[in-house]
Write a protein that binds this DNA or RNA. Structure first.
Lengths: 170, 170
DNA sequence: GGAATACATGATATGGAATAACATGACAAG
DNA sequence: CTTGTCATGTTATTCCATATCATGTATTCC
């Protein structure tokens, strides 16, 4: 075994995202969009970065850093942790990828372009991850922050539970 | 150095929580409350567990598992990772302590008793953590979940930004 | 009381996540 | 050509987390 962090116990090839979707173009268009936005903003979508984004789009689920690393090695890139982490940092920094804190894993963004504060639904059984457009900032929290003098820069919202598939099987 | 995970660069003894508060009784009363609730619910607040809760209340900020471990050793308890993790699991499970996913660290709960879905404000500069009573469940996300057939069991809300102290200094 | 059961603790070992520190390569600007 | 900058590569280390087994200590049931 090469080190697949989240084995997705139930179904390893399930159409995670909770809904069937056209997975053919979805990768290519997303990649094209990313390239366009990088050119536009003067960002450099280098080979490693592009490869990492591609594999995350391809998988369409959360991958641990060391899974990413394995695939980079297979593809002939460097195989040391920083290689993966740096690429991931870049992609997260610029909104192409999100980190799932709960899983210590990464997913490609589903809503390219829009500067958003995303929310995630994570299945505790199969580790499937779906992204939802979140409210601008959770209202109550925003109020509390203002009251305390805390300046919110970024908010992580992650819901854990059971995805439709796993609910059915129970 | 014994391994203090989050050194709190700026001020190591700052009144984290973002607001001055009476820290004298706050520990004792919280401990008493915990003991009461455990007796009531038939839970066993053993020496290790009690000690961990006490130190988290004392510190009043997020501590990494290995910081907890160091203090356990100093207090004459076992010093292997599982000792700390088991105690932390128990405390988290029963709502006495919360895990900050963003930091891989733990804080004592500020709102004892109430079964709540907490939200946190985390200073990216000094790692101070404040807990806010959160909305039951972020409304928009709840709707998305229902639409997708996802059953939410628990939600993590963590806001990153600058605490009042660190904002001042900038 | 004494055996059986469940749970808490202690210790060993291991694996995965993340970053520090340093060196190299590619490339553009001066 | 030299300098500065950024991306990449490599080594090593630190930190987070859990599986596993052994031991001990309650509590329960007979």
């Amino acid at each position: 075994m090469t080190s697949e962090t989240h084995p997705s116990p139930a179904s390893d090839k399930a159409p995670v995202g909770f809904q069937e979707h056209d997975h053919k173009n979805c990768v290519e268009t997303a990649l094209a969009n990313a390239e366009a936005r990088c050119k536009e903003d003067g960002l450099r979508l280098t080979p490693v970065r592009r490869k990492v984004l591609e594999m995350l789009l391809q998988e369409h689920r959360a991958l641990g850093a060391y899974s990413v690393l394995d695939r980079l090695r297979e593809a002939g890139f460097g195989s040391q942790p920083p290689v993966a982490y740096r690429a991931l940092d870049f992609l997260v920094q610029n909104g192409f990828v999100h980190k799932i804190e709960r899983l210590n894993a990464f997913v490609a963004c589903s809503h390219p372009g829009a500067t958003h504060s995303p929310a995630f639904m994570i299945c505790r059984k199969c580790d499937a991850v779906a992204e939802a457009q979140s409210a601008p900032v959770p209202g109550v929290l925003g109020a509390a922050a203002r009251a305390a003098g805390f300046e919110i820069e970024q908010t992580v919202v992650e819901a854990e539970g059971l995805c439709p598939d796993c609910t059915e099987k129970a």
